[in-house]
Each structure stands twice: as C-alpha cells, then as structure tokens.
C-alpha cells in the first residue's frame, strides 16, 4: 500500500520519520550490543554458575537451570538468530534478483511466463506451514548437499530461503516491470541507449530502494520465524543457543521465580524485530515520498501477523 504523502505536512512528517528512524537504529544497536557483549562474555555452554541465579553483578542476565550464563547464551543466540536470518534472506535475494529481473525484462518470453506462473503457484502455499512441513519431514534424515552433510542449522537456513524466494522474486519482477514501463525508459530507448546499458545503469539502481525495503521486512520475518521454528524444536538444535531456543527452554523448564529466563532473551528478540521493522517503515515512507516503484499490492503489509 502506498502512503502517498498529503500536502502541507512536511515538517511533522520529517520529524516523525526521524524519530522512528532513530528509535529503529537504537533498537538494532541494542540488539548488536547484547550480541557483542555475549560473544565477549565467553562460552555459552560453560557451566560456570549456580543454577537459576538472578541477574546481578556476576551474571548480568542471570543463569539458566543448568547454571549457564544467560548473557553469553543470549549474545550467542542473538548472533545465531541474526546469522540465520541474514544468510537465508541473502540466499533468497541472490536467487530472486536475477530471476525477478529476467522475468520482468523478458516478460513475454514463454520461459519467463512459466517461471512467473510457478512463483505465483508456490506463493499461495502458506509459507510458515510450508517451512514447518519441510523441516518436519527433513528432520529425521541426514541430507547431503554437494557432498557436505547438511546440519539442522543448514536445513533451517535453506528452508527459510526457499520460502522467501517466491516472495522476493515477485517483488523484484514487479519493480522491474514498473521501472521498464516508466516513461523515461521509453525515452532512453528512443534516444538509442542499449537495453543492456539501460539495465545496469538505470533499472538496477532504481530497483534498489524497493528491494531494500522488502529485504528489511524479510529480515524481520526471518528473525521471527527462526525463533518460532526453534521454539517448536524444528530449528537450530539445542544446546546451541538461539533466541527462540532460549525462550523455548525458559518455557519448558521449571523456573521457580526465574522471571529473567524468558523475559530478557525475548526483549532482545523484540528489539531486533521492531528495529528492523521501524527502519523498513522509514524506508517505505522515504520511497513513497519520492517515487512509487513499489507495485500495487506491495508486500509491505506482509508482516508477521502474530
């Protein structure tokens, strides 16, 4: 959905956005700070504390039921969660960019039509369910990819990437088509600019904003999904910490009065997702303020609805 900027409200609009942008950046900075502090803190598996120690000078985030330091675990977990999300979205984008541009560029070509059609077809499967099924079915077997044994983390990344490809392809394709149909492209072609040059110099750079917004949104969805899947026991296997694993452990173990156990890793997770979403919002507004390359039914509204 476009948020076309109404007239005459420029100042407050800029102020609001600036505030949101700063907040978003601050939240992401907080997320990264926890990650860094956790990495510096040391081994997330070491049993170096008394079980269920509340947050205090010796353990800023407290300890879990086995006596592991929760700062170290939350930090390492944040890194793993971020890594899984970035790699899966990165993979999906790497596949979707050429696929989307080519199908948008050669939209009349039969192969492009088939690919487009296939993408539309896959798109109608509920993605979270699809990932649950993919992981649920593959959890019981060893998988070899190019001779390398695929770990559970690898499976998680690949499944998420697979789920994101149709979505990203659609975004890129629509943006490419919107770009190609704009008048200046026709003008440039009339002026004798070669199509290949046009692609590299004009279309690609203009695609970037739309793709960046969607990548940001996909990132926030991926962080959410990683946590949810790990929560369900389908993600990165414990004892390796991820934010989802930590929340799940806090939920499945007896906590006594250990309020910190689920609260702190969850807050870090929320900080990460909210931060990325805020930046995506700001970016969407910036773009729609300047130009409207995002297609009609922009997936900007496709957010984790839960």
């Amino acid at each position: 959905m476009k948020a076309r900027r109404p007239q005459g409200l420029d100042l407050s609009w800029v102020r609001t956005l600036g505030w949101a942008g700063i907040l978003g950046a601050a939240l992401i900075a907080a997320f990264l700070a926890v990650a860094a502090a956790g990495l510096l803190r040391g081994d997330p598996l070491a049993l170096d504390g008394t079980p269920l120690t509340p947050p205090g000078p010796s353990h800023p985030f407290g300890t879990d039921s086995l006596g592991r330091d929760l700062l170290a675990r939350t930090g390492h977990g944040a890194v793993t969660s971020a890594m899984v999300s970035v790699v899966s979205v990165g993979l999906a984008t790497a596949v979707a960019l050429p696929l989307g541009i080519l199908t948008g560029w050669f939209r009349r070509h039969p192969v492009a039509s088939v690919v487009t059609w296939a993408v539309e077809l896959v798109q109608v499967v509920p993605p979270f369910i699809a990932v649950v099924v993919l992981l649920g079915l593959s959890a019981d077997t060893d998988h070899q990819v190019l001779g390398v044994r695929l770990t559970a983390t690898g499976r998680l990344i690949l499944s998420l990437a697979v789920a994101f490809v149709p979505f990203m392809t659609r975004v890129v394709r629509s943006a490419t088509m919107a770009e190609l149909s704009s008048e200046y492209v026709d003008g440039l072609i009339l002026l004798g600019v070669r199509r290949r040059e046009l692609l590299g110099r004009e279309v690609l750079p203009n695609l970037a904003p739309a793709v960046v917004v969607q990548v940001l949104l996909a990132l926030s969805v991926a962080v959410f999904a990683e946590g949810g899947l790990s929560y369900l026991g389908l993600g990165v296997p414990p004892p390796a910490p991820t934010l989802g694993n930590l929340i799940a452990e806090a939920g499945t173990q007896l906590l006594g009065d250990a309020w910190w156990y689920a609260l702190i890793p969850g807050l870090v997770l929320v900080a990460g997702i909210t931060g990325v979403n805020l930046l995506a919002d700001v970016a969407t507004d910036r773009i729609s303020g300047q130009r409207t390359p995002v297609p009609e039914n922009s997936p900007a509204t496709d957010e984790p609805a839960s």
Binding site: T252, L254, W259, L263
Partner: peptide, 16 residues
C-alpha cells in the same frame, strides 16, 4: 517424546 512441542505454565513474577 519431543519436549519442545509443549510448553509450560510457570511462575515467574514481576512482569507487567
């Protein structure tokens, strides 16, 4: 049994 598929109600205080 997969212990992860189910979750527990737990006491922990201090959350608004």
């Amino acid at each position: 049994h997969s212990p992860r598929a189910t979750v527990d109600r737990r006491r922990f205080l201090g959350l608004a």
